[in-house]
Simulated scan of single mutants.
Amino acid sequence: MNLSSLDELVSELRSAGDFPAGLGPLLRDVPRERFVPDRAWAGDDYEPIDRTADPGEWAKAAYSNTQIVTQFDVGVTQWPAIGKRPTCSNSMPSAVLGMFAALGAERGDEVLEIGTGTGWTGAMLAHIVGSTGEVVSAEIDPRLAGEAQERLNRTGYRRVRVINRDGTTGVPDFAPFDRVISTMAVQLGRIPYAWVRQTKPGGTILTPVRADLSSGPLVRFTVHEDGTATGRMMPMGVGFMEHRLDRTPSNPDELPDWQDDSAERRTTKTKPWLMLSDAVSRWALAVALPSCRYGIEEGRLAWFRDPLTGSWASVVPDAGEGRFLVRQRGIRRLWDEAEAAHRWWIEAGQPAGPDWLWTVTPDRQAIEIA
């Protein structure tokens, strides 16, 4: 373990306020370097790192507060090539510690982890719950599951059980659990009820939730005696990969002609960049416009697109002072929907994340202001 590099990471996290009380020793007790493959991609730019060729850069990445991608495109893309979509990573230390603080796992707890990844988070959870607790980790990729179990066994965390299965179904053979933590982002309205069913009353479920217009809300649920769960957003935002079956394709190379004058046209005084550039107001749009994507060019163009129906809307400055020209095409009038949602958000007092209440029952899921 490179103690000087670890000390620098700890100092950085403390300075940024990303060092939850009581969880700091985890970084020293469960060294990240033991769970980072010899070849991977570091940071937002996916810089290839190789422990053999350049051990210094590899160690620098291992002890930095950044994500380390360990797989692209379900393993199709081989290092050092950068693929289209990351499909496994070793998460940022600040994000991991923040999620553990929100989860509140304690010694003796039985924890279900969704998304084993490299095994690092499972090892830290095992360290938290101790010898009287249990950690079960579900990993959909058989190769990743096998490699993670090998790392866990090699580093002394044999008690972490890695189960190769779709995490959305939970792991019923080892239920019920005190805590469920997912490092897989789930789509709004698709929180697996299996997690609720397999959690003890009074237990906690922590998961990132995303919509096509907004990603990153971390939601903490409490499970109740009646088999329902209610939750609220946590202050921290995170970005995690989706379930492999939920991943929607990126925007195609050929997008609509946003200035097609044969589309339906009208004008508006609502500034689209203001409603889209603010994460709080954009979440209200995400709730109202499921499946929709957006794009924004400050001061020039904003657009919405629904890949499911082919509907789209674009907004550009109009010749009139303070007005914008709206073009819409398809069975949905996406700008009308977005403007109505934004108006409702304003009239509701501009509710922020903690104002939203999430409810999950066996037959429905809802999100409302409460």
Score class of each variant (00 low, 15 high):
residue 355 D to R: 06
residue 332 R to Y: 12
residue 348 A to F: 10
residue 335 W to D: 07
residue 336 D to Y: 11
residue 355 D to I: 01
residue 354 P to V: 00
residue 331 I to K: 11
residue 358 W to G: 08
residue 335 W to H: 10
residue 354 P to Y: 02
residue 326 V to R: 04
residue 358 W to F: 15
residue 332 R to V: 04
residue 336 D to W: 09
residue 341 A to R: 04
residue 327 R to Q: 13
residue 331 I to Q: 08
residue 329 R to P: 03
residue 357 L to E: 12
residue 329 R to T: 08
residue 336 D to K: 14
residue 354 P to C: 01
residue 336 D to S: 12
residue 342 H to T: 02
residue 331 I to N: 03
residue 339 E to T: 10
residue 329 R to A: 08
residue 334 L to Q: 09
residue 348 A to P: 12
residue 341 A to G: 03
residue 335 W to Q: 11
residue 352 A to W: 15
residue 354 P to H: 03
residue 343 R to N: 07
residue 349 G to I: 15
residue 342 H to L: 05
residue 351 P to K: 00
residue 349 G to Y: 15
residue 330 G to A: 03
residue 330 G to P: 01
residue 358 W to T: 13
residue 342 H to P: 10
residue 326 V to T: 01
residue 336 D to N: 11
residue 350 Q to K: 15
residue 358 W to E: 07
residue 341 A to W: 04
residue 327 R to H: 15
residue 338 A to F: 13
residue 332 R to D: 08
residue 349 G to Q: 15
residue 335 W to Y: 12
residue 347 E to M: 10
residue 358 W to P: 14
residue 355 D to P: 03
residue 328 Q to Y: 10
residue 358 W to Q: 11
residue 340 A to V: 01
residue 341 A to M: 02
residue 327 R to N: 12
residue 328 Q to A: 11
residue 351 P to I: 00
residue 330 G to M: 06
residue 353 G to R: 10
residue 328 Q to V: 09
residue 357 L to D: 07
